[in-house]
Design a protein around this nucleic acid. Structure first.
Lengths: 102, 102
DNA sequence: TAATTATATTGCAATATTACGATATGTTTT
DNA sequence: AAAACATATCGTAATATTGCAATATAATTA
């Protein structure tokens, strides 16, 4: 196998739990999520001011969080306002909790 | 900066949360943790039978979980018995829950 | 002590992650 | 329309992750 081709061995739930965890696996993304969660939403620009990374790097991290389904972005004039995706946020919490309880 | 040299920007809590999440960020490791948690402990060999990966790969994943503090291994004759590290398991749960609640 | 069994480590390849600067795109303001 | 601002994407580099086979280590059995 070039990589793990065996995509069917693990359950959807296991894959999803891993996916959400991966989104949380970097301190920059933790900080982003805390910013978004403390205020209910946040503009890209405001986050860029708070975080010690280049704006292009911030965009990348925001994309990963978006791909994982944990946040969503809404264009608002020239800015983009990002918010937590409540539904998946809840799902992530449930899945990780379930794993860590069992 | 060659990489993120700014190691001091993030709090210990943010770093720890990311670290635990990273340990959970792979379906193989999710499966390992579920095996360890369903029975209270598990031998390397038994896990090797259950999982679709080479034994050397399993050893690597077990090492990562050990490095993250989520499991511990005890030598028992010719075998190694792995168990959940309850204390850090609890800490991981608290940290990730805190992040996902706030 | 030699052979066997169990686990870990090493070496290597493929791919992913993280970061940045430069450039592109899109919106507002002038 | 041009300039200014906000965000995204691209290209690239350094490092990390994931996987395997081969080899090493350590304990047990013969």
């Amino acid at each position: 196998m070039p990589k793990n081709t065996n995509t069917s061995y693990f359950s959807i739930e296991q894959e999803l739990t891993a996916r959400f965890s991966k989104a949380l696996s970097n301190p920059v993304r933790i900080a982003i999520l805390q910013l978004l969660n403390s205020q209910s939403c946040c503009f890209h620009g405001d986050m860029a001011d708070e975080l010690p990374i280049a704006k292009s790097t911030l965009s990348q991290h925001l994309n990963e969080l978006k791909d994982a389904g944990l946040i969503q972005g809404n264009i608002e004039g020239p800015n983009v306002k990002y918010c937590i995706n409540k539904e998946n946020w809840k799902l992530a919490k449930e899945l990780i909790n379930k794993l860590l309880s069992d």
